[in-house]
Design a protein around this nucleic acid. Structure first.
Lengths: 327, 327
DNA sequence: CCCACACATGGAAGCGCTTCCACCGCAATA
DNA sequence: TATTGCGGTGGAAGCGCTTCCATGTGTGGG
C-alpha cells in the first residue's frame, strides 16, 4: 500500500468529462464512442498515467489473460540446461506478442497436485507444461482442459509438442554406424521423462539392425552424470567405440569423463549428443549432435493454448544431424 | 469460458451453513472463528474443490501478490546466457517459498517505458529488474518505488544487488599478471550495461600498476562476438599474451577464435572469463574464471522487494577466482 | 412534419472477494 | 440481579472494472 493515489477509471472519466462506461469503451476499444469522447479520454489517460487494473478487469471479464508456464522437476539439472531457458523465452515471446502476461512456476517432481493448485482462481488463460509427467498432466483441473499443452511427450488428454525423439535418435545412431562404430553405448534421460522411451527404442532398433548389442546406462541430463556414465561404460564394456547421450549437457560430461580416462575422442570413442545447445559447437572436440527447433516447439505449444485450438494428440518436430568433430 | 461451474466463496458458505464473512475468515485464517465453523468450512472447501479467485482477492486486498521479473534486452545473448536462467530460477524459488506468483517479462532494450506498463494495475508485489539500464529504471512508476530491486548495477532510485565487478576483475587480471602476463586485452560487455564500467576501470588500474597498456575491445556477452574479438585482438596487437572477457560465454568464444587462429591456450595466450557458468569447467582447456553467487544475488533482490525492505543503495557480492587450465 | 433507426451515452448491476461494524449470547465481575 | 467484556457472527459496503439496458440525440425516409 503506497500512500500515493493511483488513477482509476473513475478519475479518468471525471477528467475527460464522460461517464465510466464511456471511458471504459474507449479504453478497451469495444463498443461505440464518438471521436470527441475518444480524444478526451485518451488525453485524460495520458495525463493521469492511468493503467487499468488487471485484477479488476480479469474479475469481471472472467477471461483469464495470463499464460502460465510450469516446469516440472525443479532440480539443478533443469537449472543448468539451456533447453528450459529456450522454451521459456520462446513461450514468453509468443505471450508478449499477444499482450498476455506470463507466469512461471517450478513444480516439484513428486507432487502432481501442484499443477491443479496453479489454476489459482480463473485468471488463467492457458498453461504450458514443460517436462510433463503423466501423473501431473492427469491432475489438471477439469475446467482447464483444452487450455493446456505440453512441451515434451504428454498424455492423450492434452496436446503435446515435442521433437521427434525416435527419428532424431535414429539419425544420430545411424550416423555412428555409418562411420564404422558398432559397440555403441547410450546414456538415457531421467526415467520419469517419457520422451526417453521412444529414443531408447530407436537406439535398440538401429543396434539390432546393425548387429550390435545395446549398452544402456541411465542418465539425468546433467553434465556430472555424463562424466560418471563415461567411467561406468568404459569399465563395464571396455571395447565401447561410441557413446550417444540424449542430452548435450550429458554428452559434454561424457567428453570430460573420457578425457580424464585418457580416452581419445573421436579416435578411440566417438561421442554424440542431442539438442545442439550453444556450447555444443564450443567444446573441444566440437560435439556432433542433433539439432531441434526448440523455439518453434515452445511457440507452437503457447499458441495452441492461447488460441484455444483443439490440437489434441502429439505433434512431433523434425531434428537434423549436426556433424562436428566428436563423431 | 468453460461451462463448468466453479465453486465460489458463496457456494462454500452455503454448503457450510455459515455466512460469506465467516467462510472468508476461516479460509484466510484472519479473524476469529469457532472450531465448529472452521470444520464445516474446511469440509465444504474440500468437497467443492474450492480455489479462491486470485483476481478478486487481489482487487480487494490491494496487496498485489506477484513478483514480476523483467529482463531487459531480449536478444539472443540473453537467451543463451545461463546467467539469466540462474537469476530467474533463484528469484522464482524465493517467490515460491512465499507462495507468491511470478510473472516474467522480456523487455526491449530501447523502450524504457515498457517497465512502467508492466505495473498493470496494482496487482504487483514487487519487481526485480535484470540487466537494468538507467533509463528503464527511471521510468518506474512512482507507486512502485520501494518495491523494485535491480540485479546488476542500478541507479540511486532502487536498491541494486550485483557481483563486485571491480574486485572480481581486479582478482582475475591480477592473476594474469601474477602468472607473468603483461600484454593483457579485455573484451567488455555491452556498452548499455553499466556494470561493465566498473570492470573496465579495475582492469585499467591493474594494467596501469603493472606497466601494461590497456587493450579494450567491445563485446556483447555472446560467444560469437568472443570469437570475432579474438581475431580482432590478435590482428591489432599480435603480441597479446592474455585475454580477459567479462563473460564466460565470450571467453569460450575467444577460446574458439584463438583455436581457429592456431594460437595455443594457455601456451601462447592465456584466457580468463567471468561468471563461472557450468560450461566453464567443461571446455578444453578448462576455463579460468571468477565465480559469483548469482543465486544469492537474485534471491536477495527478490527478498528485498517482497519484504518491502528499504535497502536503498547498492549491495555488492564477493567473487572468487577459479583457476583452471586456460590461465 | 413525424416516425423509425442508428449511434452515442450514462446509470446501474454485478464479477468474487475481504473487512468494517453492529449485533448477539454467554461467562465473568461487581 | 445488573453490568461489562468478549469471542463469534452475519449484513453490507466496496475494491475497479465491464457491460446490459434504457435513455437521449441526431439523421434520413415516408
Amino acid at each position: 500500500m503506497t500512500g500515493v493515489h493511483t488513477a482509476t477509471l473513475d478519475d479518468v472519466a471525471r477528467a475527460a468529462g464522460v461517464s465510466r462506461a464511456t471511458a471504459s469503451r474507449v479504453i478497451t476499444g469495444q463498443g461505440p464512442a464518438s471521436q470527441r469522447s475518444r480524444d478526451s479520454v485518451t488525453a485524460a489517460v495520458a495525463a493521469l498515467g492511468y493503467v487499468p487494473d488487471a485484477s479488476a478487469r480479469a474479475l469481471v471479464t472472467r477471461t483469464g489473460t495470463r499464460l502460465a508456464i510450469a516446469v516440472i522437476g525443479h532440480t539443478a539439472a533443469v537449472l543448468d540446461d539451456p533447453y528450459v531457458g529456450r522454451v521459456l523465452t520462446s513461450a514468453a515471446h509468443v505471450a508478449a506478442e499477444r499482450e498476455v502476461g506470463v507466469s512461471l512456476h517450478w513444480l516439484p517432481l513428486h507432487d502432481p497436485g501442484s499443477l491443479a493448485r496453479l489454476a489459482d482462481g480463473r485468471g488463467l488463460g492457458g498453461l504450458v507444461v514443460v517436462n510433463p509427467t503423466r501423473p501431473a498432466l492427469e491432475t489438471v483441473p477439469r475446467e482447464l482442459r483444452g487450455r493446456v499443452a505440453a512441451v515434451g511427450v504428454g498424455t492423450r488428454h492434452v496436446p503435446s509438442f515435442d521433437v521427434d525423439n525416435r527419428a532424431g535418435t535414429d539419425g544420430v545412431v545411424r550416423h555412428l554406424v555409418r562411420t564404422g562404430r558398432r559397440r555403441i553405448a547410450m546414456v538415457t534421460g531421467p526415467a520419469w521423462l517419457p520422451c526417453g522411451d521412444r529414443a531408447v527404442e530407436a537406439y535398440r532398433k538401429v543396434l539390432h539392425d546393425s548387429g550390435g548389442e545395446p549398452r544402456v546406462v541411465p542418465g539425468d541430463f546433467t553434465a556430472a552424470r555424463g562424466a560418471e556414465a563415461a567411467v561406468e561404460i568404459m569399465a563395464r564394456w571396455p571395447d565401447t567405440d561410441a557413446v550417444f547421450a540424449l542430452s548435450d549437457l550429458t554428452a559434454l560430461g561424457v567428453l570430460d569423463g573420457l578425457h580424464a580416462l585418457g580416452v581419445r575422442v573421436p579416435g578411440d570413442v566417438a561421442v554424440a549428443g542431442f539438442d545442439d545447445i550453444a556450447f555444443a559447437g564450443l567444446s573441444r572436440p566440437a560435439l556432433t549432435t542433433s539439432t531441434h527447433p526448440v523455439e518453434d516447439i515452445a511457440a507452437a505449444a503457447a499458441q495452441a493454448v492461447l488460441d484455444r485450438r483443439d490440437t489434441s494428440g502429439a505433434t512431433f518436430y523434425p531434428s537434423a544431424l549436426v556433424v562436428r568433430e566428436s563423431a
